[in-house]
Amino acid sequence: MPNLIEAVYFLTAFLFIMGLRRMSHPATARQGIVWAGVAMLLAVAVTFLWPGLRNHGLMLLAIAIGGGVAWVLAGRVAMTDMPQMVAVYNGMGGGAAGAIAAVELLRGEVVGLGFVALAVLGGLIGAVSFSGSLIAFAKLQRLLRERPIVFPAQQGVNLTVLAGALLLGALLLGTPSPATIGLFFLAALAFGVLMTLPIGGADMPVVISLYNALTGLAVAFEGFAINNMAMIVAGTVVGAAGTLLTQLMAKAMNRSLANVLFGAFGAEEESAG
């Protein structure tokens, strides 16, 4: 059975790459998502056969609720609201990577310092992508002010929170307590919020693309932590493709990525846009 599962994961990785390739050409773009979709269905179906797994009922319930709600909502929203839907679903992926990290750290079953570090880093990136994507959604949906939200000493606060998250993450490399794990994720989530607040609504597509690349990276890191090849390959492909795509999108707007991310800080000429 493990051989069958690994074979299907291999096929999934192949179909994902071919699907992405087709999606990057106008004439074949629609086939591309179908190929990737078939691959996803195969991978999920075969995972139920994984030896020694329990809680199948919970799995089905979670897939039915999460997948069902997302599917219905994605079909209903107006086409103009699509970018924020991408943000939400991307954030969900980041949150899932964070959840994997949290459980693995609680269980303490990841072997080897390098792999624990990847699990922690993936959790950090996933949590930042989760809360950051939700803020991006809230801004585009006008639940929050679209203009950059700035406050005094913002950069200092942001850096302090990031440093705190990294420090707590370093503590997790030893023998983590549940409290440390909780604080670590709180700090990571807070940083995602703080990082996205000062970015204006017009720049959001670039930021969503950045979070998309980050989620890919988080998924790849968690793939290392739980030894899942499909996650490693698919996550890395998305991490690389997403990074390039982010740069291309920034370039198409005649901006640099740094300018998009930090433009609100101390740049008076930026506040007009």
Binding site: Y9, I33, W50, Y89, N90, T215, G216, A230, V238
Partner: peptide
């Protein structure tokens, strides 16, 4: 589309829930 592809994280989450 690439956002969909990192949805493969679902498979990892299933294994983690399963254990």
């Amino acid at each position: 589309g690439s956002n969909f592809i990192h949805g493969i994280v679902l498979v990892g989450a299933m294994v983690v829930l399963g254990y």
